[in-house]
Simulated scan of single mutants.
Amino acid sequence: MIIRLADCPPQPWKNGLGSTREIAIHPDGAGNDDFLWRVSIAEVDSAAPFSSFPGIDRQIALLDGNGFTMTLDDDRMHALTTPFEPFAFAGEAKVAVTLVDGPTRDFNLMVRRTQARGEVQVWQGPDTRMPDPSTVLVYCARGVIDTTEGPLHAGDAWRPAPASPLRLHHNALALVIRIEPNAS
């Protein structure tokens, strides 16, 4: 299934201090308290703190803009200034943000840590790939990616069916989400 960013309306952050576009959530129709995993694109246009998500492992990657510096739990700093480079942190961490120079957009993966592990992989073109069974979403961050259901352009995402290859054109870049359940 192809998901177009234009079909994902902005909604307020959990803390109401910013906005995000939910790309996909599992299970379908879940909310903040019962999702297994969630992928979204956040608009960061002020130094507002991130929402708290206890029990959630998060990964974030800069998509557009000059980025920001994250201060985690008042003592650890991370500069999110390199596009498409995932950074992992705990959802319950207290996160303050200082913008580098203007607004940014970032890619977010959230996974309920007691139930699963998530990973954001970066694939670059030109290349042809076969997503493995743990791949739940392919996000086109740059360029064009051909799928069995049609092309993806920057901002589009795809929920691949099993054994569905994709082709990344020259200069294409995909953020690929893999989710694996925790061992019982």
Rank of each mutant, 00 (worst) to 15 (best):
M70Q: 12
P54Y: 10
L99Q: 10
R113G: 04
F89R: 07
P54V: 06
S52V: 12
F50Y: 13
F84M: 01
I56Y: 07
P83A: 09
L62W: 03
H26G: 01
A42C: 04
I41T: 03
E43S: 14
G55P: 03
T81G: 08
L99W: 11
I60C: 13
I41F: 02
D74V: 06
H26E: 12
V97A: 12
N32Y: 14
A47W: 04
R76M: 12
Q59F: 01
Q59P: 00
N108R: 01
A90E: 12
E92H: 12
D106R: 06
S46R: 09
M110W: 05
P83Y: 11
L62G: 04
R113Q: 10
I41G: 02
V100I: 13
G102D: 12
F50T: 02
T71E: 11
V44M: 10
T114G: 12
F50W: 07
D57M: 05
I56H: 05
N32L: 14
A42T: 02
N66Y: 06
L80S: 13
V39M: 06
F87G: 07
T98Q: 15
R38L: 01
D74I: 02
L109M: 04
L80K: 00
M110Q: 08
A96F: 04
R105Q: 15
D45A: 14
D75T: 14
F35M: 04
R58C: 08
H26F: 15
P49E: 08
R105K: 15
L109E: 01
S51L: 02
S51Q: 00
D73I: 07
G102C: 12
N66F: 08
G55N: 05
P54Q: 08
L72M: 14
Q59M: 08
P103N: 09
K94T: 13
M77A: 14
R58G: 10
F84W: 10
